[in-house]
Structures are given as structure tokens and as C-alpha cells.
């Protein structure tokens, strides 16, 4: 039984279709990649799963329950956590306070009777930004802020973690460490769905990859399968040199564009 099932989801902004009958599943305990060229509808799909965007049609099923109309915060309570492509850290708070706030929100009244200082420190250590603990979140580099968002999401103990371009802003060695962290999280039983442009990272850590283009899933498979797929190559690199006449182009919808929120 998959943990997440995105079932025939359509999102339209005015006359423009950002997500076009997208269909894919995320298996429990897997690291799943969602890749595709710019404007393919990846972030919009994330917004649909987390509840920031209501789909025009289709369903989102999480943990055996239809959550399509559920408000954002209740999805979080059911175990969906995320990070943002355009950072959403709490800029006026320090890095440690950011994570602490996540605990505050998640714990509710129960949090009054529990000290979270150690948990905060542990999480900052885990993602490797303990040295920034007392810096304000609007003064740290992008890569660090992305790790902060990860730590903050982890504070809510999510079953499913959606990461939107988590490695952009990290250098090579940081990305490598980040890949190991993802595997560690998956081994602990968390399920990870990530949008990522660093193909080395995606190919190394993902069990399964879904390729989104024009809002639809055009390919699924293991990293090796996806990389070898000519449709994927075409989606990423534009036309191969043999010219435009392929049959598969005719079925691609003409009206497609992602609207930036």
C-alpha cells in the first residue's frame, strides 16, 4: 500500500493548466524523486499535496485517507511535512528558535510540560547547522536555510517529508552529506518525496523517480531506467537533433504553464 497517492490531479490557473492529470504513488519508506524541467508543475504538485493549493479536480490520498479537501494544518497533524523552494524560514527568529517554534506548534498544550532544548540541539546537529543556532534566520546562506527548514519540518515528526529543491545552495561536500542524511532518515522509516535539480543527488539516493513534464507524469522508474529513457532526455534537453517530427510530441498538450504563486 503506497503512503501517498496523487490520483489524476488537475490544477488550472485561469486558462492555463499547471498540473494535468498527474498520477503517481510514493511507497512507504522510500526516497522518491519528482523531477522535470522548469515549469513542469512540480512545486504546484507539492502545494496540492500539502494543501496550499486546491486542485481543480482529482484526489490526494495519504495513509489510506482522502485528504483532498483537508486544511493545511490538519494534513501536518496527520504526518505531512515540507520545505519550500522559495524559503519560508521565520526571519526574525534565530535558527534555534525556528526549530523550537516548530516544536511549540506541534506539541500544543503538551509542550508546556516538556523541555525541548535537547531535541532542538539534536535536530540542529542532525542536519549539521548547530554552529548557526544563534544566528537570525534572515542572515544565513540559502543552503543553511534549507537545512533549517528540514530540521523544522522534522520537529513535527512527519511520516512523509516533501523537500522542494533541498540541495540548491549547498556545495558539493554539503550535498554529499545531505544525501547521507536523507538515507539515514529513510532508514528510520520516514518517507521522502523530493523535487531536485541536482541529478547526481537524485540518481544516487532515490529509489524511484517520477518525471513530470507539462503537468503530467511522462516516466517512472529507477534512476537507471529514467536516465536511459529517451522521452526524459528530450524533456530536459529540448529537441534531439533528429528533428521535431516524433509521434509522442502530438499528444503533449499545447496549453501549459506554471503560474508562480
Amino acid at each position: 500500500m503506497p503512503l501517498l497517492h496523487v490520483d489524476d490531479v488537475v490544477v488550472q490557473f485561469g486558462g492555463v493548466t499547471a498540473v494535468n492529470h498527474a498520477n503517481f504513488e510514493v511507497e512507504q519508506g522510500s526516497i522518491t524523486g519528482l523531477i522535470g524541467p522548469n515549469g513542469a508543475g512540480k512545486t504546484t504538485t507539492f502545494n496540492v499535496v500539502t494543501g496550499l493549493q486546491t486542485p481543480t479536480s482529482g484526489r490526494v490520498v495519504f495513509d489510506d485517507k482522502d485528504i483532498t479537501r483537508m486544511p493545511v494544518h490538519r494534513r501536518s497533524r496527520r504526518g505531512i511535512g515540507r520545505t519550500f523552494q522559495r524559503l519560508e524560514a521565520f526571519g526574525s527568529l534565530t535558527v534555534a528558535e525556528n526549530v523550537r517554534t516548530a516544536f511549540d506548534i506541534h506539541d500544543g498544550f503538551a509542550g508546556l510540560f516538556r523541555s525541548v532544548q535537547n531535541d532542538v540541539d539534536d535536530l540542529l546537529d542532525l542536519v549539521g547547522i548547530a554552529n548557526h543556532a544563534d544566528d537570525r534566520a534572515d542572515s544565513i546562506p540559502t543552503g543553511t536555510a534549507r537545512l533549517l527548514e528540514l530540521a523544522r519540518a522534522l520537529a513535527c515528526d512527519p511520516k512523509l517529508l516533501l523537500l522542494d529543491e533541498p540541495s540548491s545552495g549547498l556545495d558539493e561536500s554539503e550535498t554529499e552529506a545531505f544525501g547521507e542524511l536523507l538515507q539515514q532518515l529513510a532508514n528510520e522509516g520516514r518517507t521522502i518525496l523530493m523535487v531536485e535539480h541536482d541529478m547526481d543527488l537524485v540518481m544516487n539516493v532515490c529509489d524511484t523517480i517520477h518525471v513530470l513534464d507539462f503537468g503530467s507524469v511522462i516516466a517512472d522508474g529507477t534512476p537507471a531506467q529514467v536516465r536511459a529513457n529517451p522521452v526524459v532526455q528530450k524533456a530536459y534537453l529540448g529537441y534531439s537533433d533528429d528533428g521535431p517530427a516524433g509521434d509522442d510530441t502530438a499528444v503533449l498538450p499545447l496549453v501549459n504553464e506554471e503560474v508562480v504563486l
Partner: peptide, 23 residues
């Protein structure tokens, strides 16, 4: 706690929502 959440909400409502806050 309350103060931190208040300021967090001022900074990013979207993040507060995805952390489970019923704003």
C-alpha cells in the same frame, strides 16, 4: 512559546500552516 509563534506567523503563514498551526 506564544511570542515565538506570533512572530513566526508574522514572518510566514504558509510555514506555520505546514507545521500544523490552525491560524
Amino acid at each position: 512559546r506564544l511570542g515565538r509563534i506570533l512572530i513566526a506567523m508574522r514572518d510566514s503563514q504558509a510555514a506555520c500552516g505546514t507545521l500544523g498551526l490552525d491560524m
